[in-house]
Nucleic acid binder design. Structure first.
Lengths: 212, 212
DNA sequence: TTGACAAGAATGAACATTCGTTCTACTTTT
DNA sequence: AAAAGTAGAACGAATGTTCATTCTTGTCAA
């Protein structure tokens, strides 16, 4: 009775179903606490399909990883293309990361919160991947142009993004209750202005804050 | 022939050997890539002993976790006891964390770099443990006394320690080559003074830096 | 339009292996 | 000789992977 079944929408392709299911499960329980059989059930595919498409459990994790790294790279590149100061670029990237943490929690969790080295063999640490290198380059360029204080690139990049990344971790761990975007302004202020009590005149503060 | 064997030193107790071996292996390969049999070989004990002392694999990981949390708590408390400003306390704790990262790498790695939730069931996130709460209290007290800028405690704590923790992660991942202690001054400067290019007169800068 | 057929994708029962745990025998200590 | 600690072979459950089979899709001749 084909007419009764017309509601059947375009079914998502098998490989997409596998990746989505795997992402959800990996984030929820951790790679090693998820079996191929779990993924198979969650994705409503057969085990054979998983092996056909990805070659195995690690293959799924790897495909997921590369896919998300690519998306992240595109996001970073899009911000780099924009006509902004490097400081504004940093701010905007932090804002977008905060936003994604709220709206696409699992993606951010898999990217920034998972220990890939424990299940992806021979994978270099994520911080030496292209998008993360691009982040550091933004900081470096900001230093060159005098927008950002000069110093060791690693230290500076860690100082710029460290607070934000820490906030993301805390949010993913469930210890911060409110959406991260609520804290954006304060995080940005702390990062540019430092943790000293504010005593400078308002005008100077505003000039230096570099709000987006 | 007891005289020939006199060199045999006081043998480390069995439970210590187990914990040390487990720490090394867990940090090197990750909890899930280490089997009880691996620990048994590395520690030169029998499987039975491991079960007698810790009740199983997770028991070993849990004992290790509590033990190290305790050590960390003592370290934090020792700094709190000292007659220092809250800002100096933050600085000193960061310095000690950097130092431990160099000298007791595995301890710091297991504490700050492992995803305990993936292998310790029903364990709350480490950032809600007593020593971490104590860290936030230092920041809170600093805010009350006007030593640290006012704001949301979570954001402020993340901003104070975020950069340092990020540096530790990068060092543990092997992407930072030099000892963290080499970067201490710069990290502290960035954190208190912010990432804006330095333009303030030297005197004011020094006053605000709060060097330890 | 129908049927035959080939190529590719999907299926899932079966398999081999690994790993956490148990249990009984043995040794040391008190 | 009782108690506590150690030893390690053996077990069963869980898991990653294989592969022979079935199903789907597209093509082409009748």
């Amino acid at each position: 009775m084909p007419y009764l079944d017309k509601t059947a929408p375009v079914p998502e392709p098998v490989d997409c179903r596998i990746l989505t299911a795997a992402l959800d499960l990996f984030v929820e329980r951790g790679f090693h606490n998820v079996s191929i059989h779990d993924v198979q059930k969650e994705a409503n595919v057969s085990i054979g399909s998983i092996y056909n498409h990805f070659g195995g459990k690690e293959g799924v994790a790897k495909a997921l990883y590369y896919h998300l790294l690519n998306e992240f790279e595109e996001m970073v590149n899009a911000v780099i293309e924009e006509d902004l100061s490097n400081r504004e670029r940093c701010n905007k990237l932090i804002y977008q990361l905060f936003e994604y943490t709220e709206t696409r929690r699992n993606i951010i969790s898999y990217m920034l919160h998972a220990k890939h080295r424990e299940f992806l063999s021979d994978e270099p640490p994520i911080c030496s991947s292209t998008p993360f290198t691009a982040l550091r380059n933004i900081v470096r360029n900001g230093m060159k142009k005098g927008e950002i204080r000069a110093g060791d690139p690693w230290v500076l990049a860690a100082s710029v993004f460290g607070g934000a990344i820490r906030m993301i971790h805390l949010r993913l761990d469930g210890v911060i209750q409110e959406p991260l975007t609520d804290h954006y302004d304060e995080v940005i202020e702390c990062m540019w202005q430092g943790m000293n009590p504010v005593e400078a005149p308002a005008a100077q503060r505003k000039q230096a804050a570099g709000q987006q």
